[in-house]
Simulated scan of single mutants.
Amino acid sequence: MSVLLEVIATTVADARVAVQAGADRLELVTAMGEGGLTPSVGLIEAVVAAVAIPAATVPVNVIVRPHSRSFVYDADDYAVMLRDVRAFKAAGANGIVIGMLNADGEIDRDGLARAIDAADGMVITFHRAFDESRDLREALDVLLGFDAVTNVLTSGGKPSALHAQATIRELVRQARGSRCTVLAGAGLTVDAIAGFVSATQVEAVHFGSGVRVGSNGLAPVDAEKVAQVRALLKAMPSAAQGG
C-alpha cells in the first residue's frame, strides 16, 4: 500500500485539481497564510459535491479553528467550534481537523472530548497544535487514548518536518499498532519527499505550499506537483516493511 497523500485545498478549483492529480484526501481550510482557519459551510458543501466522483469519492476533512491567536480556547471559542463541527457533519465532511491545548501546553482533554462528541462519528485529525505541546511523546500518548483521533498532523515540533525526521520516526514508532496515523506535514517538497518517507517510515503525508504554483501558499494547487508526489509515493516500498 502506498503512502497516503493529503493535500490542502482552499477553493473548489484547488480541490478538483488535487483530486484529479492523485490526492487521496483533502484538508479544506481558509486563510492558509494564518496556518488555516475554519472555512464556510458553503465552501464545504461545494467541495464535497465537486469531489464526489462515482466509485472514487475523496474524503474531505475540514479544519475547525476559529482564530489564529493561540490554541488555548475560551468558552465562547468552544461554543463556536462545536456549532461548526455539527454543521460540517451536516454539510458532508468526512472528518474534522482540530486541536486544543491548555495553558500548560498539554492537550485539553475535556475540550477534545467535547469536539469528539459533537463530531458524532466523524474522524478526527488533531492538527499542529500538537507541535506546540510541551512534550510531544506525552501529547501523543494522550491522543492515543481517544479512539476517534485517527490522525495526528505534525512537523515533529519544528517549522519544517524535514528538520525533524528523527522525532517523526519516533512518533511513528510510538503510534504503531494503534488506530492513529502520524500525518507528517509542513515544509515537505517534491524533491525531498522520497528521502523523508524512507527516513521516517510515515504512512501519510500532508502537502500545502509544496504542491502549489511557485511553492506559494496563496497560489493555486499545481496539478503537476501533486502528480509527481503521487508517483514518487507509489514507487516507494510500503512503510510497513521498514524498521
Rank of each mutant, 00 (worst) to 15 (best):
S2I: 13
S2Q: 12
V3D: 08
V3G: 02
V3K: 06
L4P: 07
L5M: 07
E6W: 06
V7I: 13
V7H: 04
A9Y: 05
A9F: 05
V12Q: 01
A13V: 15
A13G: 15
A13Y: 14
D14M: 05
A15W: 01
R16F: 13
R16K: 14
R16P: 13
R16W: 05
R16E: 05
V19L: 00
Q20F: 15
Q20N: 15
Q20G: 13
A21Y: 01
A21W: 03
G22Y: 05
A23Y: 04
A23V: 12
D24Q: 10
E27R: 10
L28T: 03
L28G: 09
T30L: 08
A31H: 07
A31I: 10
M32S: 11
M32K: 07
E34S: 13
E34Y: 15
E34P: 11
G35H: 04
G36W: 03
G36N: 07
T38M: 04
G42A: 13
G42Q: 10
I44F: 15
I44C: 11
I44G: 04
E45Q: 11
V47I: 09
V48T: 08
V48R: 03
A49Y: 14
A49Q: 11
A50K: 07
A52S: 15
A52Y: 12
I53E: 09
I53P: 11
P54V: 14
A55Y: 15
T57V: 15
T57S: 15
V58L: 10
P59Y: 07
V60E: 09
V62P: 05
V62G: 00
V62M: 04
I63V: 07
V64F: 00
R65N: 04
R65E: 09
P66K: 10
H67F: 02
S70I: 04
D74P: 07
D77G: 09
Y78T: 10
A79V: 08
V80T: 15
V80P: 10
M81C: 09
M81D: 05
M81T: 00
L82G: 04
D84A: 11
R86E: 01
A87E: 09
A87L: 11
A87D: 12
F88Q: 06
K89A: 14
K89T: 07
A91L: 10
A91M: 04
A91F: 09
G92L: 06
G92P: 02
A93Q: 08
A93G: 06
A93M: 02
I96R: 08
V97K: 02
V97D: 02
M100D: 06
M100C: 13
M100I: 12
A103N: 05
D104W: 05
D104Q: 12
G105H: 01
